[in-house]
Design a protein around this nucleic acid. Structure first.
Length: 183
DNA sequence: CTATAGATGCCCT
DNA sequence: GGGCATCTATAGC
């Protein structure tokens, strides 16, 4: 997991809405979560919410939080192991106009997807996408590699927005990228 | 620019 | 009932 998380930097997350609207973003910030980690949803074992986290790698784990926000993760590790990588920010690469329409509160392009809930909203994702196989190119959401190496150096540091295990340096981002959630 | 408060509902104990 | 892998508006400098 700690290897996969930084490897996702620079990859593309693409989605197709029921109306056929295509949006995609380049991943610029991620965080890793795993079972032996008190901050992880999987720490307390399989529950209705975390079922997807314990499923096969490469599927999308989407959860609801703070009464209003959806956030999405890439599941990693073998079935039975509860680990995932939270997608914290993407750089828009396709369908930016559609993202503007979905993100009414955004004032600058950096507001479009600089945060996990913003990213999920900009890509039009919600709980209905929980469990989608990201490696199935026909699915509504897919994880792609366009061959371009990530721009900027990979950096790592403590995770954001958690109250447990705040010391673990399990957040990675592309140094200097303006779409990262905090700088 | 930074700091802070409030929104809002699901999950799990 | 407590807490939450967040965001936004607003106030103040």
């Amino acid at each position: 997991m700690l290897r996969v998380a930084p490897a996702l930097l620079g990859k593309i997350l693409a989605s197709r809405s029921p109306a056929g609207e295509l949006t995609a973003g380049r991943i610029v910030e991620v965080e890793a979560y795993r079972e032996d980690d008190p901050a992880s949803h999987s720490h307390r074992g399989v529950t209705p919410r975390t079922r997807t986290m314990f499923g096969p790698a490469g599927h999308l784990y989407v959860y609801f939080t703070y009464g209003m926000h959806w956030c999405c993760n890439v599941v990693v590790g073998p079935p039975g192991v509860g680990a995932a990588v939270l997608l914290r920010a993407v750089e828009p690469v396709l369908g930016e106009e559609i993202m503007w329409s979905r993100r009414a509160a955004a004032r600058t392009s950096r507001d479009l997807a600089s945060g996990p809930a913003r990213t999920t909203q900009a890509l039009g994702l919600d709980g209905s996408h929980d469990g989608v196989d990201l490696l199935d190119e026909g699915a509504a959401v897919a994880l792609l590699d366009d061959g371009n190496p990530p721009r900027g150096r990979r950096r790592r540091g403590p995770r954001i927005g958690i109250r447990q295990a705040t010391e673990k340096p399990w957040r990675w981002w592309l140094d200097g990228n303006p779409h990262v959630s905090r700088r």
